[in-house]
Amino acid sequence: MNDSDSNPMPSIEDVARVAMLSRLALDAEGLEAARGDLAAILRHVAAIRSLDVEGVEPLPRPQDTVNRLADDEPGPMLDRDVLLELAPRTEGPFIAVPKVLGEGGA
């Protein structure tokens, strides 16, 4: 990818890589449209790069709070059959997926 300090105009290769990382299948037209959109938004977003943030701690959540921990006790769970019913494809008590090893194929 381009160096982050350069003008925030992603190349078509950048956009194809982002689409791949996003697991989004886009055709050439879709990639070109995404490039234009990303460039316009990044131009706007780039304004924050002019602010002095030296010594400022990042704030990932608004209240600097941390998660409360639950007691380590078993509780009710959703039924396996209910969850399996949601799956687009099943085989017996399993969710069916394409092969991930070898030659592939659904």
Binding site: M1, N2, D3, S4, D5, P10, D14, V15, R17, V18, A19, L21, S22, L24, A34, L38, I41, L42, V45, I48, R49, L51, V53, V56, E57, P58, L59, P60, P62
Partner: peptide
């Protein structure tokens, strides 16, 4: 795609970390 871009290597600090600092 925008979110993936700002979290990707080379852009994370320039966009995401910086945005969290501006958030503060």
């Amino acid at each position: 795609m925008l979110g993936t871009y700002v979290l990707s290597a080379g852009y994370y600090d320039a966009y995401y970390t910086r945005a969290l600092k501006v958030r503060r």
